[in-house]
Computed example of a mutant assay.
Amino acid sequence: MSSRPQSQRDPAEDDAVLHFVEKFALILADAGMPRMPARVSAALLVAHDGGMTAGDLARTLQISPAAVSGAVRYLIQVGMAKRGRRPGERRDHYFIDDDTWYSAITQREQLFQALCDTLDEGVAAVGRDSVRGHRVSELRDFFRFLAKEMPLLVERWQEQRRSPAQ
């Protein structure tokens, strides 16, 4: 262990942090996120200064630079990480903002609309009054519900974040 204060230690120096990173990444992977992006996302989440270089990520996670490259490319494409540089540095740093998770979840309006439109076509194709039509309608109605409720949940979350602790 380093003599630096815990808040300034590299996540690789702390077994409890590494355990958390791997456990959280496993849950993300089980939920459908590719394994390497899940691990990189978890490591960025606990980065002591909010960001890590590709080299930091490779050392921390004990993965190849190519694995880091693919993972950060994926995370940037889906809006779950950002790339930037610190003043005077030539290396890229990768970051996760405080609002990354709810932004990624709420920016699904287009997806929900596309799903609902396609499910409408499915209902018409299989017949509204059939068992299949009911099943497809139920899924469409669920996505409509999510599309309507998601912005309201985010608004409530933002209000809670602005409120002083109770």
Score class of each variant (00 low, 15 high):
R9V: 13
Q6I: 15
P65C: 00
L26G: 14
A31Q: 06
F145D: 13
R39F: 08
D117F: 08
T100C: 04
H19F: 06
P151I: 03
R91N: 14
G88D: 15
R39C: 07
A125I: 02
L153W: 09
Q62T: 05
R59F: 07
A67V: 04
L139K: 06
V131G: 00
S2D: 15
S69Q: 05
D129C: 03
R108G: 10
G127V: 06
S64M: 08
A71I: 03
A125M: 05
V68M: 07
L139Y: 01
V72W: 02
E155L: 06
F143L: 05
S137D: 06
D56N: 13
V17Y: 05
R161D: 13
R90A: 13
L153N: 04
Q8D: 15
G51K: 10
Q110E: 11
R108T: 15
A104K: 05
E138H: 00
D15S: 05
Y102I: 13
Y102K: 00
L26A: 07
A29G: 06
A114S: 12
R39V: 08
L146A: 08
T100I: 08
K148N: 07
D117R: 08
V78H: 02
A16P: 10
T100S: 04
A29C: 14
E159L: 13
D56K: 07
L57T: 10
R73D: 11
S7F: 06
A31R: 09
H134P: 00
F145K: 10
M52R: 08
S69F: 04
E22N: 12
S41D: 08
R161W: 02
S103Y: 01
E109L: 02
A16T: 14
G127H: 01
V72A: 00
Q158H: 12
R135E: 14
L152V: 15
H19A: 15
P5V: 13
Y94R: 02
A43V: 13
G133M: 00
D92K: 12
E13F: 01
M52E: 07
A47Y: 03
V123H: 02
L146M: 11
Q166E: 11
V68N: 02
D10P: 03
I76T: 05
F24C: 07
A147I: 04
R4D: 11
R162F: 02
D30N: 08
V131Y: 09
G133H: 02
P151S: 01
A29S: 13
D98T: 12
Q113Y: 00
Y94F: 13
H134R: 10
R4Q: 05
D56I: 09
D14V: 15
E109M: 06
L139R: 11
P65K: 00
R9L: 08
S64D: 04
A165G: 09
L139V: 15
S41E: 13
S69K: 04
H48D: 07
R59M: 12
V136Y: 01
Q8V: 02
Q160M: 10
D14W: 03
A71W: 00
E121S: 09
L139A: 14
D49T: 14
G50K: 04
D117A: 14
R59D: 12
I63F: 00
R86W: 12
M36W: 01
H19Q: 11
